[in-house]
């Protein structure tokens, strides 16, 4: 009997299984939308988030004012429904006479970009490290896990303040400071899931079928845990936005001339008694966005987690 030579693996096979995954998503899109429709909080949350995203994209089209330069003659104009208010400035103006609505709309850009990018990169870093360490364990696992424990020992805000004070303000620096700790949660989630999935029989069967360990991680196990990463990611976007606002509030995040909710709240603090709206409206905008993101995340958890679905 002649012996067949060892197999060389096709390099693009990794894409293949994810293509199936995409097809799966496409097919279950109908089901997903149905689940979303009958899940009221997720529906409301996602509609609000979509509205925020649209507002952020279309901000220059929605308003006529300049977000960075105001007219000092218009300073502290109250909201339109108050005495002395005017519909030219629906939510009033701030100390520099800039339209608050315009600044809130432009500020949502910062919040969404910072939240989205910080979580996106955190997912990439955290999942990669978590998948590798959870599957292979060994020395790398101990090193990365101890480092993650070390990072978790610091309160997030104090840690971020320290990092920002060290590397200076700016959007890129802010995102970097958030990622510097943000990846840990994804790392721990993926590592834990990887360790529990790894001992399941389908992984053993994949090995018995001749699959290499990297293929098993990417093609067999990751599709099984990607939903939890998704849900956590959604919830973390809210946290990241809060964190960005906190840092901006403290003057360590976004430079003051760029409209960001945190710095807007901070700038209105001194005029709370004479012009309550300067701080209040950015605060409400922040509150509603984070609330919407969080209930969307909770809803996604209900919809995407098959274990919950089976029980329900």
């Amino acid at each position: 009997m002649d012996i067949t030579p060892p197999i060389t693996k096709p390099t693009l096979s990794l894409i293949h299984s994810w293509r199936i995954r995409l097809k799966l998503w496409k097919r279950s899109a109908k089901e997903f939308l149905y689940d979303l429709l009958i899940h009221p909080t997720a529906l409301i949350g996602s509609i609000i988030v979509i509205l925020y995203i649209l507002a952020a994209i279309l901000a220059p089209q929605i308003t006529v004012h300049n977000p960075e330069n105001g007219n000092l003659r218009n300073r502290f104009t109250p909201p339109a429904w108050e005495k002395d208010g005017t519909w030219e400035f629906p939510l009033g103006t701030d100390a520099q006479g800039r339209d608050l609505l315009t600044r809130i709309l432009f500020g949502s850009r910062i919040s969404l970009i910072v939240g989205g990018v910080a979580v996106g990169i955190s997912i990439l870093i955290g999942s990669t490290l978590g998948a590798l360490t959870g599957y292979y364990r060994g020395k790398l696992d101990s090193i990365v896990s101890r480092f993650a424990d070390l990072l978790l020992a610091f309160p997030f805000l104090i840690f971020a303040i320290g990092v920002m004070a060290f590397i200076g303000p700016g959007i890129t620096n802010l995102i970097m400071a958030l990622i510097f700790k943000g990846w840990v949660e994804f790392f721990r989630l993926v590592r834990g899931e990887m360790m529990s999935e790894k001992s399941k029989e389908y992984v053993e069967a994949a090995k018995a079928n001749g699959m290499g360990s990297l293929s098993i991680i990417v093609k067999e196990i990751l599709p099984n845990i990607i939903n939890s990463v998704f849900v956590l990611g959604t919830l973390r976007i809210g946290d990241m936005i809060i964190m960005e606002a906190s840092l901006s509030f403290l003057g360590l995040g976004i430079p003051p001339h760029i409209p960001a909710w945190g710095s807007m709240i901070a700038s209105g603090r001194d005029y709370m008694l004479v012009a309550w709206w300067v701080s209040t409206f950015p605060g409400i905008a922040l509150l509603i966005l984070v609330l919407a993101i969080n209930i969307t995340g909770e809803g996604l958890r209900d919809i995407l987690d098959p274990r919950l679905k089976l029980e329900g």
Partner: peptide, 15 residues
């Protein structure tokens, strides 16, 4: 690498 080529192709396993 060689044993991976044997698994599933020349020797299979059911559970």
């Amino acid at each position: 690498k060689e044993i991976q080529g044997v698994r599933g192709k020349e020797i299979s396993m059911i559970f």
